[in-house]
Design a protein around this nucleic acid. Sequence first.
DNA 1: CAACTTTTATAACGAGTGGTAGATAAGTCT
DNA 2: AGACTTATCTACCACTCGTTATAAAAGTTG
Lengths: 197, 197
Amino acid sequence: MVMGRPRSFDMDKALDEAMEVFWRHGYDGASLAMLTKAMGIKAPSLYAAFGSKEGLLKAALDRYALRRSEHMRYVLAGPTARDVAERFLSSIAESHTDPANPPGCLLVQGGLACGAGSENIPFELASRRAQTETELLERFVQAKADGDLPEDTDPVALARFLSTVASGMGVIASSGANRDALREVARVSLGAFTGNA
Amino acid sequence: MVMGRPRSFDMDKALDEAMEVFWRHGYDGASLAMLTKAMGIKAPSLYAAFGSKEGLLKAALDRYALRRSEHMRYVLAGPTARDVAERFLSSIAESHTDPANPPGCLLVQGGLACGAGSENIPFELASRRAQTETELLERFVQAKADGDLPEDTDPVALARFLSTVASGMGVIASSGANRDALREVARVSLGAFTGNA
DNA sequence: CAACTTTTATAACGAGTGGTAGATAAGTCT
DNA sequence: AGACTTATCTACCACTCGTTATAAAAGTTG
């Protein structure tokens, strides 16, 4: 078997750059010109490697999920349900204001609404957001089985609440809210945790 | 003075249609072709009336604000801070799942991230979201002066929390969350209210 | 009716869109 | 070395983008 000419760019580096463009401009707002310039490659190389603009986004989303999975492992390892919630919101307050990235969350900034020809992008992003919510839910179900949450607590509602606050934090972070502001939102949200469960 | 040829379309009706297109597709995703078709007018009429695509968005946002101002009057008239919060989140659960409109909130769906040439759109939307937060803040400051909120309560944090949850509800509503789901998010959020203030 | 003013429709503008042939370059394998 | 496979480059595709010049149409006012 023959190998052919080797790829001359670093795929992960290129994906990081693409991720940043999608993050900052959204799927519709990210043009091929922007993407290829940021990635340092020409359009044919991009299409050979990722198939299409949408394929590139999905590859970038996979890489984004990889990054977050480390955080989530730590979050879900919290000893109590409340610890899990606190770790979750705190890690979001930090990551959504990390100066190394565009503000906010790629899964929110990427495109809640898209134009003709990009109709499935919002679904793609929503399904990835739902995955985090499911992870929280399973952890809360476990917590309830452990007697760590009151009997009358609805784990579905709790996971959805945290997921919703996380999305909201993405919105306000992208609008310029700073880290302390996000931390305060996390703090108030945790009050809701104890007050209601 | 001479009047000239009268406008042959209803401006408010046309704005309602434009609003829906921006709401469903976002600013970048809403093309002039979509907009003119939905509004039932041709491009030159649109430009004569609104100046530009961005001018059209702003006019639609003004009309959107007009709609919401009625809700906000009711919300802010709540007798206690907690009532205000409850009215706020409840009205959002309803409005963001009103089948008469696209799901979610125009101020979120409209564009958190935009492409080259639309850089100021996210700022425009953010400033309109901030207005609601300011209204809540002022009401909570008043509540505190009334002795309606504990001394150690931070009205800024409280208003920001509610605003953040509202944005998050917009995100999940646009992803298909139904009215009951939003109501439960509102309920849990209010638990945060009593638990923390 | 005729002068005037504004809106309308037709048609097109240049720039940019996502995507792709076709040829060349750069490797590996026999 | 030579065959083979894959990546990269230049150039370009048809199309859509937001926007506008031009001229006809529709009203009001003198």
